[in-house]
Amino acid sequence: MTKWTANDLPDLTGRTVVITGAGRGLGLITARELARAGAHVVMGVRDTGKAQRAVTGVPGTFDIRPLDVADLTSVRAFAGSWSGDLHILINNAGVMDIPAERTADGLDLQTTTNHTGPFVLTNLLLEHITDRVVHATSQLHRQGKIDLSDLDWRTRKYDGMRAYEASKLAGVLFSLELQRRLSASGSRVRSVLASPGIARTALAAHSRSNFINRFTFLTNDPERGALSVLYAATQDVPGNSYVGPDGFGGLRGYPAVRRQGKAGLDPVMAARVWEATADLAGAPAR
């Protein structure tokens, strides 16, 4: 069978795409490829100068704006300044297995970056979105366990990898509940999940796991890892589809519609995570 690649992207002329964390890694590759296909790409990044240098000389139209999804003030400012249609929102920014740290809002940095910030951003931009929201996720959501009484790691002993897995499961459940709400309202907007498999990027730079270095034959290079996001953003897939590599264990390969873990398909938990996240996003700094 022919494998889907970035060369199969449709003409995206006239379409506007926001990509968070687009200054490097998979986000930068995604931005570059979508712009090459004709999209107007808005790069939401923490370091605008670095992002500008990264796309200097790259064909396409880029709009670089400050956005730190771990800072809810930054998220609200970005969303508040938006006007006009937004065809595709790609929640790409993420961190993995980092040490415990609190944000300016008093929230867990890892949970906020991977879940709470994207949750707030999506909801604030939703009235402008006309096509879909793409959530970058991870196969490790399958190992995630969520404690609704302590979603933000305030009372439990913090564990970086467990926090990462939980944040990714929360994101998968967010997609499920978002799609339910969109469908119930009669909206044609889709919520779609995309896993790059295990891509050799800087995401795991802080991780204690040495998996990527020891088992490179089971991993994707960054260019191929970005294909799942590109596919999820542009192909005609059903709402709440899970796009991931077609190879062994969903770890590497070319994009295909797969299936998220069983825990990510629980509608009751999805609704509860939504409410818990909404409460958390309004929590005062401490």
Rank of each mutant, 00 (worst) to 15 (best):
I88V: 15
Y164E: 07
T61L: 08
S74K: 12
S183H: 12
A22C: 02
A283D: 09
A271E: 15
T111I: 15
D8K: 11
W274E: 01
V45C: 09
V58A: 13
D150G: 03
R156Q: 15
T130V: 00
M96N: 14
L109M: 13
V229E: 09
V268P: 03
K157Y: 08
G250E: 06
N91V: 00
A37P: 04
I29Y: 01
D11H: 11
S149N: 14
D159S: 14
R76N: 12
H128A: 00
D108T: 10
Q179E: 14
N7R: 14
R156G: 11
T112E: 01
A22P: 04
G25Q: 07
V237C: 07
Q235Y: 02
G57K: 10
T13Q: 06
R32D: 06
V134R: 01
P238N: 09
S191A: 15
K3R: 15
T13I: 00
S81M: 09
G106L: 06
F217S: 13
P222R: 13
V229Y: 01
V17D: 02
G186Y: 08
S81F: 02
D8C: 10
A136V: 15
R181H: 04
A270P: 08
Y164N: 04
L124P: 00
H206I: 01
M1F: 05
L72Q: 05
R224W: 05
A6T: 11
V69M: 08
R162W: 08
V229M: 14
G197H: 07
D279I: 11
L109A: 12
V120C: 08
L126H: 07
R46M: 01
L28R: 12
R53E: 13
T20M: 01
P118S: 10
T122S: 10
A77H: 11
M96V: 09
A22R: 02
V75W: 01
N114Y: 08
I88D: 00
N213I: 01
V192A: 05
G160Q: 07
A285K: 14
I198F: 12
D85T: 10
F217Y: 13
A226Q: 06
S228P: 03
A37I: 01
Y242F: 15
G80M: 08
A199N: 02
K145L: 12
R200N: 10
G21P: 04
L173Y: 09
R252T: 11
A271Y: 02
H115L: 12
N92S: 05
T73R: 14
D105N: 15
G38E: 10
R188M: 06
V45K: 08
A79L: 10
R214A: 12
G14P: 02
H128V: 00
L148A: 05
I198H: 06
Q139S: 09
R272E: 14
V273H: 06
